[in-house]
Nucleic acid binder design. Structure first.
Lengths: 124, 124
DNA sequence: TAAAGATGTAAGGTTTCCTAACATCGTTTT
DNA sequence: AAAACGATGTTAGGAAACCTTACATCTTTA
């Protein structure tokens, strides 16, 4: 079983993801609506989340707590997945540098709170 | 978050544990009845399994497929947890050697089938 | 052949999750 | 300032997943 499969395996139900991320069901569904995650569905249409999804949700949460909005977060994520194709002509250089700064600050805060990316990564 | 906590964290619902182990709900509950696992319960009384639990279930499955019965499996597990306190006077030496042999064979088969202890251990 | 062991199945009830809609409340935009 | 927007809360009605209990079945053991 490859690491990739392990990370993307839909193992987790809504309730535990809520606990792990300290997000409400409403929030999680809203982020899905914006395609930040795309959880698997059971035959009965229930969401099943992967460890990757939890990771992403924790990132989204962090960004939102920094005052970033969905639109920017989406762009940030697009950039991650394909940094070339996303040469945003509508993002000024100063804007970009601001985002980078925020990412840095975010990376620092990673040391502190209860459940964080660093910990979860040890699951897979 | 320690490795121990990660392994014992109740993350998994009945349905995924069924998939991961290829056991029926009936079987899983039966093994719990015999105290081979003791899954956590949610407020609403639903079972939540840890990765340790899945590990144990896969072991139980293996032993049963080898023709061992619950009673012997229980003893085997007791021995694991406390090898001293379980000096079984009612287990003959030949019996013991047979069990050991089975454990060895079981350990070999670990290389083969679809989802196995070796793989799962990489989750935590 | 009866008892015991392991599992299947069915019934009835509860919990968890689903979508859809509307409410709220702070922040932009006009 | 009023309207629009963005993010989240809340509620309602319904469906899926899970629970326990009890009985059925089939195999192995006594």
């Amino acid at each position: 079983m490859s690491r990739e499969i392990r990370r993307t395996m839909p193992l987790l139900s809504m309730s535990i993801v809520m606990q792990l991320t300290e997000l409400s069901a409403r929030q999680i569904r809203y982020y899905e609506e914006h395609h930040l995650i795309e959880p698997h569905r059971t035959e009965g249409n229930r969401r099943m989340f992967s460890l990757n999804d939890v990771d992403t949700l924790l990132e989204v949460k962090d960004y939102l707590e920094q005052g970033m909005n969905m639109a920017k977060i989406k762009k940030l994520f697009a950039k991650k997945l394909d940094p070339v194709a996303t040469e945003e002509p509508d993002l000024s250089d100063t804007e970009l540098r601001r985002i980078m700064r925020e990412e840095m600050r975010q990376a620092q805060r990673m040391q502190k709170s209860s459940i964080r990316r660093g910990d979860l990564s040890r699951f897979y």
